[in-house]
Amino acid sequence: MKNAWLKTNTFHYREFDDLSALVAAKARKKVTISLCLPTLNEEKTIAKEILIMKSELMSRYPLLDEIVVIDSGSTDKTREIAAAYGADVFEAAHILPHLEPHKGKGENLWKALYITKGDIIVYLDADIKNIHHRFAYALIGPLLLHDHIKYAKAFYDRPIATGKSKMRPTGGGRVTELVIRPLFSLFFPELTQIIQPLSGEYAGYRELYEKIPFPIGYGVETSMIMDIYEKWGLNVIAQVDLDRRIHRNQDTKALGKMAFVILKTFINRKKKLGLIDLKEKLFDEMIQYNLVHDSYQPDITRLEAVERPPMIEIPEYREKYHMSRN
């Protein structure tokens, strides 16, 4: 396997820390940039993300033109806090309300395409405990300073918070190493050069996002990489070392569900591309077991592989952006 891409398209965030240069490049390219934060009960971290981005990348350096929160129906104070710190807050269910509603991160990202105005859209997970403005500017940097790059993805060390205020220095990334990397190694070895394909932080041009479908749930990162790779090739993708990202830990059962959705997304993509032939339909239920009073009880979660079509196919979107049907 060639690994030329790893050398040419891998960056470190420090390569983009001259924010004045990024602002100048943005002006030269005459582009606008939106930051989108998909949320579901993120009241502990959302304010910090918004205020740091607003202070550093809007007030001090005009790199971002808007900060948009797309919420999946939080039951805590996420929306209230986000609005108090100046973000534009939307409930996903109220965007394009005539469409059948779905809940999931991918749904929020997809609907953000309709709501945001930017030519470049930066997506950041809203649960980053050690948020720093590099999470946004370092992903925007390759898009502004390298004309061939249209999509930049984060990778980092992943210490995890293990409760009781203690930090564990390594961990996380289990689904990547146990599911995605083996799959990529088996079917798309070139994509193994992407160090953290499941990272939830990426920036890209609208012209890419609007042309690809979005699974509504966890599979969105996997499908996005596969679709961009398939349509435009690996060379439009960059990856940026953001140093360190601290996030809350997820238990093995939650990761199991994530792995289920990702596997399903992967297999469906392969099928769609004509690369595999399935003899029968995949099931939609993830079955796990709990030990309850000395007996094993199944814990069944229905995880359908619902996918939104490319946004450009939605008439309201084309109308909003004055696009013709062709």
Binding site: K48, K129, S165
Partner: peptide, 17 residues
Amino acid sequence: KDIDHNYVVKKSTITGA
């Protein structure tokens, strides 16, 4: 340094070590 120093910012308070 092994204590979590990541602060929680809310509407009117900030909490952390």
